Amino acid sequence: MPLRKADVVDEALRFIDSEGLDQLTMRKLGAALNVQGGALYRHFPNKEALLDAMADKIVEGIGDPLPDTAWFDQVRILGNRLRTALLSRRDGARVMAGTFSPGANTVIGTDKAVQVLSRAGLPPAQAGWVSFALFYYVLGHAIEEQAQLGLPPDHDWRERTGRLAVEVSPQYAAALDSLSGTDPAERFDYGLNVFVEGLRRLQEKERAAQEHAAR
């Protein structure tokens, strides 16, 4: 049966789940598919194009219909959907971070976020800015989560900082402890809530200003 583009993407994702992103090459992927490496180039001109397709596959479903609820709850849902998608694959966040050409799923998901924020009263331009700010918060958090999974079991933040011979405050030390001692999902939800609540207050302030100007 002829090798399909979707087969290449699916196998590439299975490969990074098993071996990690740093081990992925077109040659190794061709061997995993039992084809010559050159056969892959009929579907993807280079590894960067393959990574773009892998990233778009990872975020499949992000733009699915949302429940009929308040806009700020929909923003939380979108943020959690994206985090879940990125963490569903080993190095998934790094795959997404290294792409520059958005695919259909990426566009659909971003469009969904822009629609939600536009219904909340943001002009399209600002809705786009906020959508990307949300995306980068989720992406950055997921990158750190997956990086922490690769740390040795005995890794100690305090010891590592101590080797730098830098005096830190007790508050900073407590903050470092929380990075390894707190559930990443709890930290993520806290940050997402700060983001959403800040946005809600901004919208309330702007709405009040508009109502005052209309009097």
Rank of each mutant, 00 (worst) to 15 (best):
L151F: 13
N193V: 10
A32S: 12
F135A: 05
A147M: 06
A142L: 00
E144A: 13
P2E: 07
K28R: 13
A185F: 14
M54P: 01
Q148I: 09
A175C: 13
V196M: 07
E19L: 07
S88I: 07
V59D: 02
D154I: 06
L179I: 04
S18I: 15
T182V: 09
I108D: 03
L82H: 01
T25K: 10
L50V: 03
G140A: 09
Q36P: 11
R94M: 07
A208I: 12
V114W: 02
K205C: 12
A213D: 14
G98Y: 05
W157L: 07
E206R: 14
G121T: 10
V168C: 10
A31D: 13
P184N: 14
V138N: 01
R200H: 10
Q146K: 09
E167P: 06
I62D: 00
L51G: 00
L202I: 08
E167W: 11
D56F: 02
Q148A: 13
K112V: 06
H155Y: 10
R83D: 04
Q171W: 15
A185C: 15
L3R: 04
A142P: 00
Q115P: 13
A209S: 13
V168W: 12
A165T: 15
D56L: 02
E186R: 05
L13N: 01
G98S: 12
L50W: 01
H141C: 07
G140T: 08
M1G: 15
L192A: 04
G198P: 08
H155G: 01
P184S: 11
A113T: 01
A70W: 11
D52W: 00
S180E: 08
R83Y: 15
S131K: 03
A120P: 08
A97L: 06
E197W: 14
H155W: 09
L21A: 04
V114N: 02
L192C: 07
S169A: 09
G30C: 06
M1P: 15
R119F: 10
L199F: 04
Y41R: 05
E48K: 01
F132V: 03
V138I: 12
S18H: 12
Y136S: 07
R14Q: 02
A174F: 07
G181N: 15
D10C: 14
F100W: 03
L3C: 06
M26E: 02
R215E: 05
Y136T: 06
L139N: 02
P2D: 05
A208E: 12
T161E: 03
W129T: 05
E19I: 08
D111C: 14
K205D: 09
R81K: 04
